[in-house]
């Protein structure tokens, strides 16, 4: 990116197999069956999804798993033409809609794509439902995104 002064080019790339832990393994197995599995802190009752090993409020192990429905509420959103890239900035062909989705019965929200609507229709508090990928593989990307349901 420099002008007249010489620069040297370089890149950093490293491969990892991130260990997800048994609790997230359970969540990913659920996705493969098109099901949402969260977990619940026995002390404060908070329901997390994706599941967490430790409740931040209580500093306790979370042991109880709970099934959650595939519908929830959009609690926040944004939309952007910029691709989210760790390599170099580039613009996408389409504007990407992004939302925080809180499943009914959960206390935490997941940041996921919002589909099958237009940016101007997005509203905090709108009901949304999951869109699964056609062939789930037990990966976070099995959740294709969420689409508005009802009046939207």
């Amino acid at each position: 990116m420099k002008g007249e002064i010489l620069t040297t080019k370089g890149a950093v790339r490293a491969e990892f197999d991130f260990w997800v832990g048994l609790y997230l393994d359970k969540f990913l197995d659920g996705l493969e069956q098109k099901k949402f599995i969260g977990n619940k802190c026995s002390k404060c009752g908070k329901v997390y999804i994706p599941p967490r090993k430790i409740c931040g409020d209580c500093f306790e192990h979370i042991e109880e798993y709970v099934d959650l429905p595939d519908i929830g509420v959009l609690t926040n959103f944004t939309f952007t033409k910029w691709a989210i890239s760790e390599r170099r900035p580039r613009q996408s062909k389409n504007i990407k809609m992004i939302g925080l989705v809180k499943l009914d019965g959960a206390d935490s929200a997941m940041l996921l794509p919002i589909l099958k609507t237009e940016p101007e229709n997005l509203k905090i508090g709108m009901k949304v439902q999951v869109v699964w990928s056609e062939k789930p593989q037990g990966q976070p990307t099995d959740i294709k995104g969420f689409k508005p349901i009802g009046g939207a």
Partner: peptide
């Protein structure tokens, strides 16, 4: 978070500020 947010790939400096 490499186990969820990175595969989903929607969070960066711009989108976080927007939220």
């Amino acid at each position: 978070d490499p186990t969820f947010d990175r595969p989903i790939n929607l969070l960066n400096d711009y989108t976080a500020a927007a939220l």
